[in-house]
């Protein structure tokens, strides 16, 4: 599965890197974030790009998994 680790980056780097990763049209993608804003941005971007999204809380943030709908 394609993984994007954007933990610790300020806006809009998490959004930029997630968007770049989506350019390859992956069937599944995992995004690691550690701020609420990055989480919301990544979730919205994945949903708007027709992915089914699941969010898991981890000790140092959240893991967002997107599967092509």
């Amino acid at each position: 599965m394609l993984e994007v680790d954007v933990r610790g980056f300020s806006c809009p780097v998490p959004l930029m890197r997630t968007k770049k990763a989506l350019e390859g049209d992956p069937a599944e993608i995992r995004v690691l974030v550690d701020s609420g804003t990055a989480k919301a941005n990544a979730v919205n971007l994945l949903k708007d790009s027709s992915y089914d999204v699941a969010v898991d809380e981890t000790p140092d943030g959240w893991t967002i998994v997107g599967k092509k709908a």
Binding site: R7, G8, F9, S10, P12, V13, M16, D34, D60
Partner: peptide
């Protein structure tokens, strides 16, 4: 600048 790779690096816990 951001497109050219500018960022302030990762924050840590």
């Amino acid at each position: 600048f951001l497109k050219g790779g500018y960022n302030l690096g990762r924050a840590k816990h």
